[in-house]
Amino acid sequence: MNVQDHAVVVGISKYGSLKPALEGPERDAKAFADWLESPQGGAVPPSNVTRVLSSKFDQHDANRGNDAFLFEPTLSSMTAAFARLMALTARNSSKVPRVGRRLYIYLSGHGITPRVDPVTSTNQSALLPANSMEDVNLDGVSGHAYAEWFRLSHAFAEIVMFMDCCRTDRPDVAPPPITAPIVQGGRPDDVLVFYGWATRWDTRAWEQVLGTPPSKRGVFTFALMEALTTGQTDAQGRLTPQGIVGHVNIRVPQLRQNDVRQLPQFFPPNPDGRIVIASRATAPPEPNTTITFAPPLFGQQFDLQDGSTFATLLSRTASAAPWALALNPGTYVITRAGGRDTPLIVRPGGTVKEHLDD
């Protein structure tokens, strides 16, 4: 088990007054927390995983009547788990990292983007508590703000955050401040981060019926869980942010293809492989991409580039033998000097056959 890892997982499906009604957030949060605690997943000790779920407050809600302001979890319930880790960070100020190896943050439910300024930026999307009321009480929890507090305080060596909620722009709502001072003396630039949002700024995140048995799920989290559990790993069986970004960026639009679009956002947008999300014993990956060459191209060099960064990944001299590749889901480009570029899209579970001619 990864005993130095910690996680805060929040899923809110029951709101007092906010519409529409949601079914997916708690189900998605449970799925993510279960993956975290699984030895085949995050391998985080259950005692290090704090779950803040609507169902934990059902008994309280039975006495709430029709008073939306009494619904739970409230903002204080949501931030308590962060406050405990912040206090531990302050107590351990003499060492770095001050708490552990990795912090996971997962937030799902109704969300907004509070007022944006040059400091907070558009990443300050906020998950709203269950007692939120339109135009009255829209104080929420910014996963990014808390993740950055722990980074700047060098509480962990790595921070992984996912937010599955809408990011509707609300310039009339001020982001609630984090009042705890940054713990100084660390090396925040050494902290590795991977942040993911279900959708872009000022757009909605969607839930729909997915999976077997069919149930309402957040589209982003459904695709994320696919990547975490069955997504393609590298040759060493390591699942890194590269594999997650490649899978989710293709899978979410695919799931929404007949409805309103949803485009996830990640930071960094083109991550490297330094964060290993999970390791799985794996057989050598089967080739899923086959490139063949017309005879006039024999002897010429072709490069396979990342479709986002255009960094050269592999090179091959064209011949009669097919170029068989095992590629993670994502976009790629085949290039050659003086020739046209050929784009490739590798979809999750799919195969690609591309014939290059003169």
Score class of each variant (00 low, 15 high):
N2L: 06
Q4C: 06
H6C: 08
A7V: 10
A7W: 09
V10E: 11
I12R: 08
Y15R: 08
L18I: 07
K19Y: 07
A21K: 14
P25V: 04
P25L: 00
A29Y: 00
K30P: 04
D34E: 15
S38D: 15
P39I: 09
G42T: 04
G42Y: 06
P46D: 00
S47G: 14
V49H: 02
V49P: 00
V49L: 01
S54L: 01
S54Y: 04
S55G: 13
F57Y: 15
D58S: 13
N63D: 13
N63K: 12
E72M: 12
T74F: 07
M78L: 15
R84S: 14
A90D: 13
P97D: 05
P97L: 01
R101K: 14
Y106E: 08
G109M: 02
P114M: 08
D117I: 04
V119M: 02
Q124I: 01
Q124A: 15
L138I: 05
R151C: 06
L152S: 11
S153P: 07
H154K: 05
F156L: 01
A157M: 07
E158A: 11
I159A: 06
F162P: 03
D164T: 06
C166F: 04
R167P: 06
R167W: 02
R170T: 10
V173Y: 03
P175R: 00
P177S: 12
P177E: 07
P177K: 03
A180V: 14
I182Q: 04
I182E: 10
G185C: 08
G186Y: 02
D189G: 14
V191G: 05
V193Q: 13
V193S: 13
Y195N: 05
W197A: 13
W197C: 08
A205T: 00
V209W: 03
V209P: 00
V209C: 07
V209M: 12
L210M: 10
P213R: 09
P213I: 03
P214Y: 08
S215R: 15
F220P: 10
F220G: 11
T221W: 06
M225W: 02
E226V: 03
L228H: 04
T229G: 12
G237D: 03
L239P: 07
G243T: 11
G243C: 11
I244S: 11
V248I: 06
V252Y: 00
P253V: 08
L255A: 06
Q257K: 14
Q257P: 02
V260F: 12
Q262V: 09
L263R: 14
P264H: 12
P269T: 05
I275N: 02
A278R: 14
S279F: 01
R280G: 07
E286C: 03
I291T: 00
T292S: 14
F293M: 05
F293W: 06
Q305C: 15
Q305W: 06
F310N: 12
A320R: 02
W323A: 00
A324Q: 15
A326W: 09
N328E: 14
T331L: 09
A337P: 03
G338K: 09
G339E: 01
T342D: 09
L344D: 05
I345N: 11
G349Y: 10
L356I: 15
